[in-house]
Design a protein around this nucleic acid. Structure first.
Length: 303
DNA sequence: CGCGTTTGACCAGCGC
DNA sequence: GCGCTGGTCAAACGCG
């Protein structure tokens, strides 16, 4: 969802459901990390992420999540294309037919030319506190793998969007440091409406805020995203006394209170105050030009 | 029967 | 070059 296509995914906003209630029943905090590129060795990257994103570990926030010099292909999840420069990743898109899949080596399906690293799409990771590993986000996912993670007692699960035209993937793992923390990493951007999601009626907006923020990030044009410093993080601090809505960017406020979402969700301000600790933002970052400029309202920028 | 999960195996990238 | 690790495949299995 961190797609850099600069196009708002349909279904986001008005009817984009946040995480379902169960998933966030125990939600207490959520932190985003925009990965300019996949850190080499996903385990290491995820581990850093987990430790970094916990408020208690914010002191180590300077650890990069992505290599600053890594250039990314255009992030587009859908081979069908929506005007985004998907050509760069076209080879990386999953084959749509079984024949293609059979004739394609797993790695070859995602690798580019020899000597090049496999195409990597824009990814977003965020941390949530939840007892549930697989958080509802409004889309249907099919689990396609699970791996033990080095230095972690918890396995990492791999999910793929069930939409055949959608190549969005996500990884879910628990933090080894804090078992209550779930690290969810999205890769790619949905190119379709969410599937009919409606399990149970209640939605808890803290999750919505989380995802909405991530989506908000996706509005940033690709090039802009790639030119940004390696790490952008937004912390959803439940302990903040800020009014959640007022501290949200206008677009999120709209998401939150304006449309269907606002009407159909039980919004919990306790977990939605947007904070941007200055320590997490490189000093040379201009809020007017980067992701945060679109996300963090001026009043929040100073703490 | 269709869909999703589990799980062992395979492959590529990377570090030593 | 070798071993480790991450990422993915695909057959088997379970469930509604």
């Amino acid at each position: 969802m961190a797609g850099a296509a600069g196009e708002r995914p349909e279904g986001v906003g008005g009817d984009w459901p946040p995480f379902a209630g169960d998933a966030f029943a125990e939600y207490s905090s959520s932190v985003f990390a925009e990965l300019g590129g996949w850190p080499d060795g996903l385990g290491a990257g995820a581990g850093e992420l987990a430790s970094l994103d916990l408020p208690e570990a914010s002191a180590s926030a300077s650890v990069p999540l992505a290599r600053p010099d890594e250039t990314l292909p255009a992030a587009s999840s859908c081979s069908s294309g929506d005007g985004a420069p998907a050509a760069a990743t076209e080879n990386a898109d999953r084959p749509q037919s079984a024949a293609d899949a059979a004739s394609m080596k797993p790695a070859a399906a995602t690798a580019t030319k020899k000597g090049q690293k496999r195409a990597r799409q824009q990814r977003f990771a965020f941390v949530t506190k939840s007892e549930v590993d697989h958080l509802e986000d409004g889309y249907r996912w099919r689990k396609y793998g699970q791996k033990a993670v080095k230095n972690s007692p918890f396995p990492r699960s791999y999910y793929r969007c069930t939409n055949s035209k959608c190549t969005v993937k996500k990884r879910v793992e628990r933090s080894s440091e804090d078992p209550t923390v779930v690290i969810t990493t999205y890769e790619g951007q949905h190119c379709h409406h969410q599937t009919s999601f409606q399990r149970g009626g209640g939605m808890h907006f803290h999750g919505a805020a989380t995802v909405a923020l991530a989506e908000q990030m996706s509005f940033v044009p690709t090039q802009q995203l790639y030119n940004l410093p390696p790490l952008r993080r937004l912390q959803m601090n439940p302990a903040s006394s800020e009014s959640a809505v007022s501290s949200m960017p206008p677009s999120l406020q709209q998401l939150n209170g304006g449309d269907d979402l606002g009407r159909s969700t039980s919004y919990s301000p306790t977990a939605s105050a947007v904070q941007t600790p200055s320590s997490l933002v490189p000093p040379d970052v201009s809020f007017d030009m980067g992701l945060l400029g679109d996300i963090v309202p001026p009043g929040v920028r100073n703490g």
